[in-house]
């Protein structure tokens, strides 16, 4: 049995639904009718503690902590079946991405995710491609008759990361290393 918990209305985050639904791709959020199609077809439904339609209900009510504490937002396999089948056109998988964005802003990012961003920041790619690694890869490619892969300008990549607010994430992980 789950423990019952009372949440006062003044503890709800009433702006959450608008914060999410104003973003391109998530405008349909407010149309949810709680039919549960998203949950019935969810690839990871047996692994999560809050089913997709319950995440949306919590989001509409402003139960931010319940959502951010559930494992539902980071367990998604990104199969997009929820979005595909929603009769009201709610793009649940994109809304979930925006919820992960909110968790990230609060510093709650699983290492499996933040490490990829670091790799992109350092290499421009999700695969290490600098120094000795770069030489090894290109020698292999040359043997196969494939052209060398050109590296992107990392200053440009990091400028974009910084301007979109990911500068702190990069800085923080550097500090953690030290």
């Amino acid at each position: 049995m789950t423990e019952e918990k009372t949440i006062e209305s003044n503890q709800l985050d009433h702006s959450l639904r608008y914060e999410i639904s104003e973003k391109v791709g998530a405008k349909s959020l407010l149309k949810c009718i709680q039919c549960g199609v998203c949950s019935s077809g969810c690839t990871v439904s047996e692994y999560i503690d809050l089913q997709p339609h319950r995440v949306v209900a919590s989001l509409l009510l402003g139960l931010k902590d319940i959502i951010l504490e559930s494992n539902a937002i980071w367990t998604c396999s990104l199969c997009h079946r929820c979005t595909e089948r929603c009769p009201k056109g709610v793009d649940y998988s994109f809304i979930l991405a925006l919820l992960r964005n909110i968790a990230s802003k609060e510093g709650k990012i699983p290492i499996e995710y933040s490490s990829t961003v670091e790799t992109i920041s350092e290499n421009g790619f999700v695969v290490p491609y600098t120094g000795r690694m770069k030489n090894t890869i290109n020698r292999r490619r040359e043997k196969m008759g494939l052209p060398e892969v050109s590296s992107p300008d990392l200053d440009e990549i990091n400028y974009i990361l910084k301007e979109t607010g990911l500068g702190n994430l990069m800085k923080k992980s550097k500090e953690d290393e030290d």
Partner: peptide, 11 residues
């Protein structure tokens, strides 16, 4: 589409 979209849609 996994990590970067998850962490920051603008980036």
């Amino acid at each position: 589409p996994v990590s970067l979209q998850s962490i920051n849609v603008d980036a």
